[in-house]
Nucleic acid binder design. Structure first.
Lengths: 169, 169
DNA sequence: TCTTTATCGGATAACTTTGTCCTAATATCC
DNA sequence: GGATATTAGGACAAAGTTATCCGATAAAGA
């Protein structure tokens, strides 16, 4: 539902939003503590600066911070640069026309799921995400997103690919 | 939600299921009429033969046909070889643990969507899909999936990539 | 048996996504 | 001004998905 890139973006923004307001967070520190490839994360954050979700300061004691209050950043703002949201408005079976006149067999199902998805993107703010996180965090020992054992994402992707192959065995 | 490959598989099976029972359909004909790359479709159908959804007959007057009644083929059977369904059970934000104890901020949302998705895969049969299709087809002039203008998929993918780039430009 | 017609399946290419590396630009501290 | 720390951004590499090509295999019909 979210690309890897969007997932990184959301997790990084949650982390930034939980820091004291105005503090600049280093991309390297974020990558390290969240287990996200540092240079890749850096690209993602740069993109979010371009879309005015983050502000950055170069040089010593620089870093990233929110461009506006977390309550004013919607999930959609975070994800939009990395997802093709227009595509999800299209027919899930790729029909050129999929309206009431000639709906595909999955029209109703997909319409419902899409509605929830879009609604979640539009209504949920970054503040909602961090509130939820902080509330749950009370009884936990530490940050939920901190990596526990090995860096995730590398082996899991490889395993996945075994079963999805079509061309080669 | 579905990969391109799964989408092709579903559309091809719907088409096969609407043919007279027992008739063998050529992969080349399917690809042509549905606007799906022929050789790629052929791989997909071969895979579905391996998972016992289709049967194939080689040689003259050969082709593909359903291995069992359309009512006995569930959407899940069609899609499973091409989707990593286990992955959708995991946390949408990639948390190692995302249960009641320590749920991620999107836990409820994702759980709900996932439930609908899995339910649709489990309950909907190929027969349900074709019934729906045939019912709607009454007032339409021809097959819904027949390609209208140009072959879809090629330009649309390129356009998409413009906005999703993170690394370059 | 020979030819024709299809599937089977490996090799490979194109494109996308994800990840790495290196240099430039810029800000701070001395 | 110079050293240092950090973002900006291009080039490139690796992995995954989608698509193409071609020869092998198998079945049917002459």
């Amino acid at each position: 539902m979210f690309s890897q890139t969007s997932e990184y973006a959301i997790r990084a923004l949650i982390e930034i939003a939980t820091r004291p307001e105005g503090e600049h967070v280093l991309s390297s520190e974020l990558g390290e503590s969240l287990g996200i490839p540092q240079h890749y994360l850096s690209k993602i954050l740069q993109q979010l600066v371009r879309t005015r979700v983050l502000k950055s300061v170069r040089g010593r004691s620089g870093g990233f911070r929110l461009a506006r209050s977390a309550a004013d950043i919607r999930l959609r703002d975070i994800v939009e640069p990395f997802e093709d949201l227009k595509k999800c408005e299209e027919c899930i079976l790729g029909q050129p026309v999929c309206s009431d006149a000639g709906a595909c067999p999955l029209h109703d199902f997909w319409g419902d799921v899409r509605e929830r998805y879009v609604n979640e993107l539009e209504t949920k703010s970054l503040a909602d995400l961090t509130d939820y996180q902080l509330k749950k965090l009370g009884s936990m020992n530490a940050g939920l997103f901190k990596r526990v054992g090995s860096v995730p994402g590398k082996e899991s992707l490889k395993q996945k690919s075994k079963r999805k192959k079509v061309g080669t065995k």
